[in-house]
C-alpha cells in the first residue's frame, strides 16, 4: 500500500517536472519580448540598434521616458486613456443588462435580438469604419471621449458571456423578489448583478484592456489631438526612417506595465470567473 503510494508520488513528481519544464520555457518565450522592450527603453539610442544586441543596457538612461512626457504630450494621452477606460466600465453595465435581458426574459423577438448581437462578432472593424464615423459625426460627438467610446461600448462577446452565466440564476430567486414587490431594476442590481460577480470581474478586465489599448476609433473619431489615446500617441512616433526605438519602446512599456500589474493582481478571480461563466 505504502509502496504503491510512494511509487505513484514519484511518478507524479516526474510528471510534474516533465510538464513544468516545457511550460516554464513556453512562458519565458511569451515574456521575452517584454523583457527586451523594457531593456531597450532604458538604453541609449545607439546601443538599442547596435549589433550584437545586448539584453541589458551597459548605460542606463531614462531619457526616452522623459521625452515622452516633455516633448510629447503623454500625460494628456494617459489621462484620456484612463477616461476611456471609465467609460468602458459604463458600457460594461449596459452589456451586463443586455445579458440579463436575453437570459431571463423570453420572447421570439428577444431571441432575434440576441442573434443580431452575435452577428456583429463576425464583422471586421474595417467594414464599419466609415459608416460609424458618419454616425458619430452626425451626432456631433467627434470631439469628445464619449463619442470615441460609443462604437465599442457594448461587446458582443461580453453580452454572450453574461447571458451564458445569468441564464443559470434560478428563476425562483427572481420570482420571490418580484412577489416581495421589488422592481425589475432593483432585482437586477440587488440579485442578478451580485450573483454575477465572477463574470463581472472577467468582463471588467477584458473591458479595461480593450479600452486601454484602443487605437482605431480614437484615431478616426478624434477631431482634435485633445482626445488622442496612448495608442494613437505612440503611433505618432512611427516614421519611416528617423524613428527612435528607445522612445517607442518606452511608450510601449508605459502602456503595457499597468495592465500586467492589474492582471497579476486579478488573475485568480479571472480564472474563477471563466470557470463560473458556463463555458466549459
Amino acid at each position: 500500500m505504502t509502496s504503491t503510494r510512494s511509487r505513484r508520488k514519484a511518478r507524479e513528481r516526474v510528471g510534474t517536472v516533465l510538464i513544468a519544464v516545457p511550460l516554464t520555457l513556453g512562458a519565458l518565450i511569451c515574456a521575452l519580448p517584454f523583457v527586451w522592450m523594457v531593456a531597450n527603453s532604458v538604453k541609449t539610442r545607439a546601443e538599442a540598434v547596435s549589433y550584437p544586441p545586448q539584453l541589458l543596457p551597459s548605460q542606463w538612461t531614462f531619457a526616452a521616458y522623459v521625452k515622452l512626457f516633455t516633448e510629447l504630450d503623454f500625460l494628456h494621452y494617459t489621462l484620456n486613456t484612463v477616461a476611456l477606460v471609465a467609460l468602458g466600465l459604463v458600457g460594461l453595465l449596459l452589456t451586463a443588462m443586455a445579458g440579463y435581458g436575453f437570459a431571463k426574459f423570453k420572447g421570439r423577438a428577444l431571441g432575434w435580438g440576441f442573434f443580431a448581437v452575435l452577428m456583429t462578432m463576425m464583422i471586421p472593424a474595417q467594414v464599419t469604419m466609415i459608416p460609424t464615423y458618419l454616425v458619430v459625426n452626425a451626432a456631433g460627438l467627434t470631439n469628445n471621449l464619449v463619442g470615441i467610446a460609443l462604437p465599442t461600448l457594448v461587446s458582443a462577446f461580453g453580452v454572450f458571456l453574461f447571458r451564458q452565466f445569468m441564464i443559470t440564476i434560478p428563476d425562483s430567486l427572481l420570482e420571490a423578489a418580484r412577489i416581495d414587490g421589488a422592481s425589475e431594476l432593483r432585482i437586477f442590481f440587488a440579485i442578478a448583478l451580485p450573483i454575477s460577480r465572477p463574470i463581472l470581474i472577467v468582463q471588467g478586465l477584458l473591458t479595461v484592456i480593450a479600452s486601454w489599448n484602443s487605437f482605431l476609433w480614437p484615431l478616426i473619431l478624434s477631431s482634435s489631438q485633445r482626445t488622442y489615446t496612448l495608442s494613437v500617441g505612440l503611433s505618432l512616433l512611427n516614421k519611416q526612417i528617423t524613428t527612435d526605438p528607445t522612445v517607442q519602446m518606452a511608450g510601449a512599456a508605459l502602456m503595457t506595465l499597468p495592465i500586467i500589474v492589474l492582471f497579476f493582481l486579478a488573475q485568480r478571480h479571472i480564472v474563477a470567473g471563466f470557470t463560473m461563466s458556463g463555458i466549459k
Partner: peptide
C-alpha cells in the same frame, strides 16, 4: 492657432473621414 499632429501612417484615414463629413 490650434496645432494637431496626425500620425503619418494614418493621414489617409483622417482625410477620408474629414472629406466624408466635410469637417
Amino acid at each position: 492657432v490650434t496645432v494637431e499632429a496626425i500620425p503619418w501612417d494614418s493621414v489617409n484615414d483622417r482625410l477620408t473621414s474629414a472629406v466624408a463629413s466635410g469637417k
